[in-house]
Simulated scan of single mutants.
Amino acid sequence: MNFTRGESHVLESVVAAAQLLGVDLDAKQQAQFQRYRELIELRSKQFNLTGHKTWDKIREELFIRSLRVLSPAGGNVPTPEWFAGKRAIDIGTGAGIPGMIMKIALPDLQMTLLDSIGKRTNFLIEVANELELTGLEIINGRAEDLGQERGHREQYDVVVARAVARLAELAELTIPFAKVGGTVILPKSQGVQDEVEEAAAAAELLGTAPALVLEVDKPGTSPPDDMVYWMKISTTHREFPRRVGIPHQSPLILQSDDE
């Protein structure tokens, strides 16, 4: 695929962002990012894929900000190499954020994209076909249902979800997918500590160690993210996740004795 000078210039920032994380995008991957961008712009005109309509916003808020999930923050926090050969799932992926970005950047990553809206999953199937991606599963469904299925329950090394709910609700929608020893990674806007404390009892009940929260401000020029990490240390009780809608209506929040 040949790029115009302008396209080549703006794509260079995506390449540089990936390099900052230790990921070198080859010509094929760069072409995949470019085509993905074109498909997002094209299909967003037909139905609401994302609120970001310009290439500048797509590049910064969707592409580069999604790469932060791969940020090498040190210690037990995953680096790009840590993801190699892992099985991951993106809950409530929407237009493929961040799961599709992770898959293009790390082709060996076995990725499942889950969304409840058929138009979005149909779009993702189109993207997968156009980009000739393998090792990618796209599912139209609800986390509450899929999280109870044998082929998906406690089968993933990495579980991600971006901006789909508060942490107390996300805990029940994500943790049941992680195998013991797996990690749930949740990018959130800054100032997440109240949510972390609110969700602490739920995370413990569902089988994780206390959350690790790290500020990640690179790559890109978007505001810093608070990256929330939950490490799965014990199996999740069969009761969870509960039926569709219940985690949203009645999240697992510890009530005080006088309530």
Rank of each mutant, 00 (worst) to 15 (best):
V244S: 08
F47D: 07
L170G: 04
L214I: 12
E172T: 03
G99H: 00
Q110Y: 13
L67C: 04
Q30T: 07
A202N: 10
R5G: 14
E144P: 03
D108T: 12
L173C: 06
L170H: 06
L49P: 05
Q46T: 11
L42V: 14
E204S: 15
F83M: 05
P98V: 00
K57F: 07
V77I: 15
A171W: 01
R162T: 07
E81N: 14
R35N: 08
S71V: 03
F123K: 00
P241L: 07
R37G: 09
E81T: 15
K119F: 09
T221F: 14
L42A: 13
A209R: 08
F177T: 02
R68K: 08
Q193L: 12
R153F: 04
N76I: 08
R43M: 13
P224G: 09
A178K: 01
I91C: 00
T79Y: 04
P210V: 05
S256H: 13
I64H: 11
T208D: 03
I138Y: 07
F240V: 04
E198G: 12
N2F: 11
G74F: 05
A163C: 08
K119W: 02
Y156P: 05
S189P: 10
P251Y: 08
A17C: 06
Q190L: 15
Q29R: 12
D115I: 06
V180S: 01
A168S: 15
Q249W: 05
F83G: 00
A209V: 03
